[in-house]
Design a protein around this nucleic acid. Structure first.
Lengths: 208, 208
DNA sequence: GTCTATATATGGATAGAC
DNA sequence: GTCTATCCATATATAGAC
């Protein structure tokens, strides 16, 4: 692991950066406080001085990540762009954003799976997700009423769009192994994928 | 957790069933040997009598699951059905299979992410995956040459198909929360989804 | 605020009786 | 093969000096 310590920043900030790194790569259970301390280049005891427990530190990271995960999606959806332009921008923004920190989708979904006991924290992440889904579904319904796109189940549409965007990142190790592509080639695939998804949806939704 | 002990079966078999359950729900690191013992309704020490270490037990489960994960996909792809009938059957078989044990996709992908150190085990799962991908890609190319489907990147096609199938299971907790649907309704969505995905691909791939 | 030393808790593994 | 008791390693957490 590459140390990403910034001497100009506070210890607290360095810890948070390191914790994000370690938690995202390993998940809560496999992440070690020592790893975080090492990554942040500080004494392990300091973790407890700044953040009382591992759980507390994790909660902060999880909340941060899940909160901003679809932050700008909503602003795109609520703009007054035409429907397919919104779709295009959502695809573009999401893929470009996740490409920078490809662990986020797996991190969030995995933790939601594995630890029902920490579900209160996850609850905080839900309202935004819920809004993204409902706004998107309403948009689809509008387009269908206006006769501009084919009649498909709006729920399936939204699930599919986010699936098309997020799945490759979730399955990245398997995809790289199966297609025998390195990191660079994978990045290229994801860049190409922006256009691919857009075309795919446009073609599939057009009126017969 | 519901105990799934079968008195007629051997202790060893009961352990394997319990281990599968626990590992799939929690992943390697969060899974506890005690949980497995409890689930199998046996003494924790017996786990070590039958399987020396946690790692060994995990490897067996992982291999089993990943091996049979796409077992029948290949037989469908290699049959002499028309292309879109193959696609339909793959979607149908995959979704029905995963619905029975919805944790498998997350289990496999998550472990491939989180533990590069256990990568030798994963290597065993790759050849089949690789074959599924390459066979599928070849099929797409054939169809394109024959002018029966639109020119799209075959790699993107295969990634998309498996993404459409698997993503909902990976994101199930988030989807259920966002759409406010219970387990039953989620199952219904997945059943409807078989037809949805088929239509979606057929529509999207047809020649303009 | 940061360190060393150490306590405490957890969970994986073993020894040995039955 | 199965149990009880226990060991040991690991990791989190705290106490207290500086």
């Amino acid at each position: 692991m590459v140390k990403i310590v910034d001497k100009t920043k506070s210890t607290e900030e360095n810890i948070l950066v390191a914790a994000r790194e370690v938690f995202m790569k390993k998940g809560f259970s496999a992440a070690r406080m020592c790893d975080i301390a090492h990554e942040a280049n500080i004494n392990p005891a300091l973790l407890h001085y700044y953040f009382r427990k591992k759980d507390k530190l994790f909660d902060i990271i999880f909340k941060q990540e899940s909160n901003q995960f679809h932050a700008n999606i909503l602003s795109i959806l609520k703009s007054d762009l035409p429907f397919f332009e919104k779709v295009r921008q959502v695809i573009d923004a999401d893929i470009k954003k996740i490409s920078v920190t490809p662990y986020i989708p797996m991190f969030i979904l995995n933790e939601m799976h594995n630890n029902p006991s920490r579900n209160e924290q996850y609850a905080a992440a839900i309202p935004q997700q819920k809004e993204v889904f409902s706004v998107f579904i309403r948009l689809v319904e509008q387009e269908q009423k206006a006769g501009r796109i084919r009649q498909v189940c709006p729920k399936q549409f939204v699930i599919s769009l986010f699936g098309m965007i997020m799945f490759p990142f979730l399955a990245q190790p398997m995809i790289q192994a199966s297609l025998e592509v390195n990191q660079l080639q994978f990045n290229q695939i994801m860049e190409d994928r922006i256009q691919f998804i857009y075309d795919f949806f446009k073609k599939s939704l057009q009126i017969a």
